[in-house]
Design a protein around this nucleic acid. Structure first.
Lengths: 262, 262
DNA sequence: CGTCTGCTTGATGCGTGTCAATTTCCGTGG
DNA sequence: CCACGGAAATTGACACGCATCAAGCAGACG
């Protein structure tokens, strides 16, 4: 639909979250040359091994990165939300190191890699912000590794739910115990190193324990503290500062039609 | 012992590996204020949760980062070698997100975080290099996630061996099928999400298959192609360009007395 | 109203974990 | 130079979490 109203504001906001940026720097970011496009669910935004001359930023919706092994199994390496740079792992290489796919309908901004680098060189604070943001993403990846390597099935699912809850709250996408949920059980399995069958059984356990109820497009956390305990979750690794998850009204933001469609 | 002869050259080299740096930028890096220290094996270089006012660079030896879960199990999140920044995941936060420990005797350079940031702001190329390097590290973390989430025990061990072989060759630390090995089987298990008992059995299988022989301080890969096949290893994610592993003489660098001691 | 995708359930087996004991290695002190 | 001690490697028996295979069910959509 409408491709015009979307600016790079979400991207600039995300970058200023961890590193203070001045007015002119924000201006520079917003005036980056870019092309936006609205894509339906499951569209490939990048493909592992293909040339990546442009950087992609997610302006709206959710997406996920994944790699595929020789025997065909898939591992999800991150879940992206509004403001995220999608090809942060590519570094200087112009070959995509992982595939990125839309989890629902998304709005993407394509920025020429050279333009982003130029802005980074022209505005040192932006370069530092990009560095910082990439470091924080590495920290998240490290936590995913801990999750998959050392937690059992129940904790893994709970942990991912906690992470996405905090990140969505921090991004202003949701504010309460009820928030959009965009992963199928199979994708959830690919993110946590499990099979969809076992994900299913494990989610049922979390439901039975009264910790959450997970639907296809929304999730409701009934017992935040219990879920954190089950997940061995402490949000420090997200580097988002202090975030209150509790004193929040059961907001109605879970109804986000543009996220549900298609 | 001698703390003087060590310069930040290893750090500057590593940074220039993926992003070209000019002479003055290299100069700026080398003249960063820093304090070096030689530490024995197993020393904590950083502790999860503690304040991190300084950045640490590894000038010589090997180190590893790890996080500990609530039930006491440990997950290794990366293995560092000469030139690596040790606290890349900390981002702007001054709280360490993981612990770093020496794998053998190491030489460390402490650089005030503010000085590094200042140099990055003064030299845009350095800022971009730091960003790039951090992105490449995120890519490595993502591959570790794939390894732990989707490969079986044999492939996991083989994969880590392949990665460390390529990275050591790229860093000029080793050049042949025989190179220093600094991980105990327990640490190897913590890096691959397995128990030391199972690591032991799995290493024996790799030996029996004629792929490698692993000692306490050195490893010899007898069949590089076979090992890569067993590991489902393709080095693209390391973003190190093309690296020939084969046509190399069984160099004697595996004897590195300063790595073996204590 | 049929088809497709995602969710759910059951039966069965394998890959790892766990526990526990033993052996090898190597640095250290007598 | 040898004896000791502690850490790392090795081995075996057993248990269990999760994968696998296969089938059935429910909602979404044209």
């Amino acid at each position: 639909m409408r491709d015009q109203p979307y600016s790079l504001a979400a991207f600039a906001d995300k970058l200023s979250q961890r590193t203070a940026l001045g007015k002119d720097e924000r201006e520079a970011l917003l005036s980056l040359p870019h092309r936006t496009s609205t894509l339906p669910r499951a569209t490939f935004i990048a493909r592992e091994g293909e040339c990546a001359s442009h950087c992609c930023t997610l302006l709206s919706g959710f997406a996920y990165s994944h790699r595929v092994t020789g025997n065909g199994s898939r591992q999800v390496t991150s879940v992206h939300m509004a403001g995220d740079l999608l090809d942060i792992q590519n570094g200087a290489s112009d070959v995509a190191v992982c595939s990125v796919q839309a989890l629902g309908p998304v709005v993407i901004a394509h920025i020429p890699r050279s333009a982003l680098t130029a802005v980074a060189k022209a505005h040192p604070s932006i370069a530092v912000a990009l560095w910082t943001d990439t470091g924080a993403n590495a920290s998240i990846l490290a936590e995913w590794l801990v999750r998959v390597g050392r937690l059992d099935a129940r904790s893994r699912i709970a942990h991912l739910v906690c992470e996405l809850a905090v990140r969505q709250k921090s991004s202003g996408i949701s504010a309460g115990p009820c928030f959009p949920w965009v992963l199928t059980q199979e994708q959830l399995g690919d993110a946590t190193g499990m099979t969809s069958v076992h994900v299913n059984r494990t989610v049922q356990i979390l439901r039975r324990d009264g910790l959450l109820s997970m639907g296809q497009h929304r999730i409701e956390v009934s017992d935040w503290n219990g879920l954190c305990r089950a997940a061995d979750f402490s949000p420090g690794y997200l580097q988002l500062g202090d975030i209150d998850m509790l004193p929040s009204s059961p907001v109605a933001i879970c109804e986000m039609p543009h996220l549900m469609a298609v």
